[in-house]
Design a protein around this nucleic acid. Structure first.
Length: 554
DNA sequence: CACCCCCGCGCG
DNA sequence: AAAGCGCGCGGGGGTG
C-alpha cells in the first residue's frame, strides 16, 4: 500500500511479489477498503510507516491483523548488513503524535514528499529487504524479528489510540495528600513551601532554592556537611538534621514536577463518553532504544512512578489484567545459552530463589545482585564478589555474556538471538584505542583507553541479554494481541493499554479477565517456543486482576 | 528568547 | 555516592 497525494495505491502481490492487480482509492475510502480485505482474506499489509496509516484506520474503527513496517524493518536490516547498498529511504519520519489530521498547513506542504511514496517505491523497498533477508545467515530468525517489530508498531499505535484509563480524582487526592492543595500557578504547594522554610532554617540559608543543585551543595557544605553532590545516595550517608526534611522535599518536588497537576492537565484526556475513565495516551516509539526496547516520547510513560499508579483505574464493569514476566532477562540468557543448570534454577516461579537453592548465594537478595551484576558487568562490591561462583555454577550462560563483553572491548558488534545488531563504537572510541597502542603512549592515555574499552564491553554484554529479552517480549505482545482479537468484537474486546519492558496491562471486560490472564501467560510460553524452540527454560508470568494498577503486587 | 548541557531521579 | 546496563523528563544555569 502506498499513500500519496491524498490517494492510496494498493498493489495486490503474489507470494513471490509479483503484482497481481492494482487499485486506487481516495484516502477517505481507505478504511473501508482495508476492512473489506481484512474480512475477506486478512492479507499482510505492506506499508512504509505504521505511524502514517494506523491512526486514520483506528479512528475509523478498523484494525488489521498483520503488517510489514518497512521503515522499522529497514532500520534493523541496515544495521545488520551495513555493507549492502542502501539507497536513501523514500520516506520522511512521521511521529504517531503528528497524525495527518487536516490542518491549515495542508496545501502548504509538498504532498508527494510528506507521504509514503509511490506503489513502485514501496514495492522496490520490499523486494530489496526480502533479498537481503534471504541472504542472511539465519533468515528464519530475522524474519521473526521483522514480523514482531511490525506487530509492535501496530500495538504501539493501538495503545496510543485506546489510552490507559486514568482517574483524575484519585490522582488529585494523591497529590493533595502528599503536597497540599493545588497552588496558584508558579507557587509552591503548601506542604512543599513549609519544608523549604524548615530546610532554610536548618542550613541558615534564608534565600536558598533547594531545586538548584549548585545553591544547595554550597549551602550544605557551608553548614558543615561533607558532600560533593546533592544526590539522595550521598545525603543518606550523612548525619545531620537537614537530611530528613531535604530528602522529603526532593521526593515531593519530584512528584510535583514530573507527575503533578501540570502533567495531569497536559497529558490526561477527558473521557470519550460518560461512564468511562479519562485516558493517558502513552506515545511509544518501537525500536527507539538501541537494544530494541521501546522508547517513549512525551508524558514519561516509561517512568510512571509507583506513587501515582493508583490513578490507573479500569472503566466501570472492566478490569485491569496486570502481568509481569518473572526474571525475563536471566531466563532469556538461560534459553539462548542452553544452560540447563540455569534453566533448572528457573523452574518454579522465582529464579533468584533457585539460585539460592543452587548455592550461588545465601539470600534471594544476594542472588539477584549477583545475577544482575553478571548481566550488567559489575566488577566490584557484592556483585563482584559473587561473580566467581556464578561463573563456576553456570558456565554456559555466563560464557555468552563474557564473550559479548570481550567482543565489545575489542570494538566488535554483537547480536541478539533473533539478529538485532549492536551499534559499532564511534570513531572517537577507535581513535582512543589506536592512540593507546602506539609505542610512546602515556600511562594516562592507556588507562583511559582501557576504561572506555571496558565501558563498551559492558554495553555489548548487556545488549545481547536486554535485546533478546526485548524481542521475546515483543513476540509475547504480538501473540497476546492475536489471542485478544479472538475474544470479542472491537467494542467489548480486551485490549493492551500499557507495556513496560517485561510488564503488560490489558484492559478487559470483567467477565473475560480470567480468560485474558490465561492468554497472557500462554502467550509468553508460545513466544518462547517461537524464539527458542523446545527449550527447557520456563517463562512464568505473574498476573493480577485488579481495578487499580496500585493493587497489583510485584 | 531559544538552545544546549548537566544534574538528579523516575522506570525496567 | 555509585558500584553495574538501557531509557525520558524537568529544572537550573549557561550561551548566543
Amino acid at each position: 500500500m502506498a499513500v500519496q497525494g491524498g490517494r492510496v495505491e494498493v498493489l495486490d502481490l503474489t507470494d513471490d511479489r509479483r503484482v497481481r492487480s492494482r487499485s486506487q482509492v481516495a484516502l477517505a475510502g481507505l478504511a473501508r477498503l482495508v476492512a473489506q480485505r481484512e474480512a475477506a482474506d486478512a492479507p499482510r499489509w505492506v506499508w512504509t510507516d505504521t505511524n502514517q496509516v494506523a491512526p486514520p484506520l483506528l479512528a475509523a474503527g478498523v484494525r488489521v491483523g498483520r503488517c510489514v513496517d518497512l521503515r522499522l524493518c529497514r532500520a534493523i536490516l541496515q544495521h545488520a548488513f551495513p555493507d549492502r547498498t542502501w539507497p536513501e529511504p523514500h520516506w520522511p519520519t512521521v511521529a504517531i503524535g503528528q497524525q495527518p489530521e487536516p490542518t491549515l498547513l495542508d496545501g502548504l506542504v509538498d504532498e508527494d514528499a510528506a507521504v509514503g511514496g509511490s506503489g513502485e517505491q514501496v514495492l522496490a523497498e520490499l523486494v530489496r529487504q526480502q533479498e537481503v533477508l534471504a541472504s542472511a545467515p539465519s533468515p528464519g530468525r530475522l524474519r521473526l524479528l521483522l514480523a514482531a517489530e511490525s506487530a509492535g508498531a501496530l500495538i504501539a499505535a493501538e495503545i496510543y489510540h485506546d489510552g490507559l484509563p486514568w482517574d483524575r480524582r484519585v490522582h488529585d487526592q494523591i497529590l493533595t495528600a502528599e503536597l497540599g492543595q493545588r497552588p496558584a500557578p508558579g507557587a509552591r504547594p503548601q506542604r512543599l513551601a513549609a519544608l523549604v522554610e524548615v530546610i532554610r532554617g536548618l542550613l541558615q540559608a534564608p534565600a536558598l532554592n533547594p531545586d538548584s543543585p549548585v545553591e544547595l551543595l554550597r549551602a550544605l557544605r557551608r553548614a558543615g556537611l561533607d558532600v560533593t553532590t546533592t544526590s539522595r545516595w550521598a545525603l543518606r550517608e550523612v548525619d545531620h538534621p537537614v537530611v530528613e526534611p531535604l530528602l522529603e522535599y526532593k521526593r515531593m518536588a519530584r512528584l510535583l514536577a514530573a507527575n503533578g497537576w501540570a502533567w495531569m492537565d497536559a497529558w490526561i484526556v477527558p473521557a470519550a463518553e460518560p461512564g468511562r475513565k479519562d485516558r493517558f495516551h502513552p506515545e511509544y516509539v518501537p525500536g527507539g532504544v538501541i537494544t530494541g526496547r521501546w522508547a517513549t516520547s512525551g508524558g514519561g510513560a516509561l517512568q510512571l512512578p509507583k506513587q501515582i499508579r493508583a490513578a490507573v483505574q479500569a472503566d466501570p464493569g472492566w478490569r485491569l489484567v496486570v502481568a509481569d514476566a518473572a526474571q525475563i532477562e536471566p531466563r532469556a540468557l538461560a534459553a539462548m545459552s542452553g544452560d540447563r543448570g540455569l534453566a533448572a534454577a528457573g523452574r518454579g516461579s522465582d529464579l533468584y530463589q533457585g539460585l539460592v537453592a543452587a548455592g550461588v548465594a545465601g539470600t534471594r537478595k544476594e542472588a539477584k545482585v549477583a545475577m544482575l551484576g553478571a548481566l550488567y558487568g559489575a566488577t566490584t562490591g557484592a556483585a563482584g564478589l559473587l561473580m566467581p561462583r556464578l561463573l563456576r555454577t553456570y558456565p554456559r550462560a555466563t560464557a555468552v555474556v563474557e564473550r559479548a563483553a570481550r567482543t565489545g572491548e575489542g570494538g566488535g558488534v554483537v547480536h541478539t538471538w533473533l539478529g538485532r545488531t549492536s551499534t559499532p563504537p564511534p570513531d572517537s572510541w577507535r581513535e582512543s584505542q589506536a592512540a593507546a597502542s602506539q609505542p610512546g603512549a602515556s600511562a594516562a592515555v592507556q588507562a583511559r583507553a582501557r576504561q572506555s574499552a571496558r565501558n563498551w564491553g559492558r554495553f555489548t554484554r548487556n545488549f545481547v541479554v536486554q535485546g533478546t529479552a526485548a524481542e521475546l517480549a515483543l513476540c509475547w505482545l504480538a501473540e497476546l494481541r492475536r489471542r485478544l482479537a479472538l475474544l470479542a468484537d472491537l467494542q467489548q474486546r480486551p485490549h493492551l493499554v500499557y507495556f513496560l519492558h517485561d510488564e503488560v496491562i490489558v484492559h478487559s471486560p470483567e467477565e473475560l479477565a480470567e480468560q485474558v490472564a490465561g492468554d497472557v501467560s500462554a502467550s509468553l510460553t508460545e513466544a518462547a517456543r517461537l524464539l527458542f524452540g523446545a527449550t527447557e527454560v520456563e517463562f512464568p508470568v505473574h498476573t493480577a486482576i485488579v481495578s487499580s494498577y496500585a493493587d497489583a503486587e510485584h
